[in-house]
């Protein structure tokens, strides 16, 4: 069982730790080892840490050039590694990076690949990886398997599984040095333009207060923001709020936005279209505040308040403030 890590500016994408947790569970069912594969530079000091997240082994392909992402070099390196070492299962984060190289690796290996999985399991009798993913906009779930060929490749949506730390153990580190040069890649990186925009990490938020159409206006989001600030939360929203420009794109939760799993998700004026639900249904506690008592959001909410958010939230803010003071 392999997990392929990706990184950006020297930081490992958190989906790698999430996949190690799920990978550990699956590897134990299959009674196989769990290996983390990382292609990059300057990760030497970090590798032991993966043992705390469940890995038995790390394959570290060290190359100065691969501090940045090169599509064709990732494909080449991973394909060679997989052909040589023959893992049964390879899990990759369903980030744009993962979804760029994974299909190409699968094609070169003539292997099955399932995109953007939200559920993984092992079929006991066969050892097949059962890969569940939303399809048709999340209205339907499909469970897919790769019955006859190996390896089985899957990209897995970030934020679905939780990273867990376990007892520190000694891990085996396999370090392979590659002297890749820029000319080895057909496509050249001409320039990297960093955008000044403040980075919002909705996926990492412990609490999210999200607004939907019911918020009513861009002005209305001030109330959402106020509640978020009192709770120390991030602000999010449904697709329509982004389309109406009430909220920035990077705060969108749902099928076409972020998938989040905070410990508390407060949905205000969100009816709960399935496209939104798929992005937040793994949250710990879900609170819904909505005027329409029949809104589907109440089907998944742990606590529901049927009422006008413009009346409920100001009172809630005061109650939360008071509760915080009492502590």
């Amino acid at each position: 069982m392999w997990v392929v890590a990706e990184h950006y500016k020297g930081i490992i994408h958190k989906v790698a730790y999430q996949l190690l947790a799920k990978g550990r569970e699956l590897a134990d069912i299959l009674n196989v080892s769990l290996t983390l594969v990382i292609l990059g530079d300057k990760f030497d000091a970090l590798l032991d840490e993966f043992g705390e997240y469940g890995a038995d082994k790390v394959i570290y392909v060290k190359s100065t050039l691969l501090k940045d992402y090169y599509s064709d070099l990732y494909v080449k390196t991973l394909t060679e590694l997989i052909s040589k070492r023959k893992p049964e299962i390879v899990l990759i984060g369903a980030t744009p990076t993962g979804r760029d190289f994974a299909p190409r690796v699968a094609k070169r290996l003539n292997a099955g690949l399932t995109a953007d999985c939200t559920g993984l399991d092992i079929e006991k009798e066969t050892g097949n990886l059962m890969q569940t993913r939303p399809t048709f906009g999340g209205n339907i779930m499909a469970t897919i398997r790769t019955p006859t060929s190996r390896p089985q490749l899957a990209t897995v949506r970030p934020g679905i599984f939780k990273a867990v730390t376990c007892e520190k153990k000694k891990i085996k580190i396999i370090k392979l040095e590659k002297e890749y040069k820029e000319k080895d890649s057909v496509a050249k990186i001409v320039k990297i333009i960093s955008k000044e925009k403040k980075k919002i990490n909705l996926e990492d938020a412990e609490i999210i207060v999200a607004g939907g159409r019911g918020v009513g206006s861009k002005e209305g989001f001030k109330l959402i923001k106020e509640l978020a600030e009192v709770l120390g939360a991030e602000m999010g929203g449904s697709r329509v709020t982004v389309e109406l420009n009430w909220l920035d794109q990077d705060r969108q939760v749902g099928q076409t936005g972020k998938t989040v799993s905070p410990s508390l998700y407060i949905a205000c004026g969100i009816s709960g279209a399935i496209q939104h639900l798929v992005g937040m249904q793994n949250s710990g506690i879900i609170v819904a505040i909505n005027r329409d008592g029949n809104a589907p959001i109440f089907n998944i909410a742990h606590y529901g308040i049927v009422g006008d958010l413009h009346e409920v939230i100001p009172v809630l803010i005061e109650k939360v403030k008071k509760a915080m003071l009492e502590e």
Partner: peptide, 14 residues
């Protein structure tokens, strides 16, 4: 290489 094993409507928990 892949086959659809089954399709289903997501179960909502809560």
């Amino acid at each position: 290489m892949t086959e659809v094993w089954k399709i289903f409507i997501p179960v909502r928990k809560g």
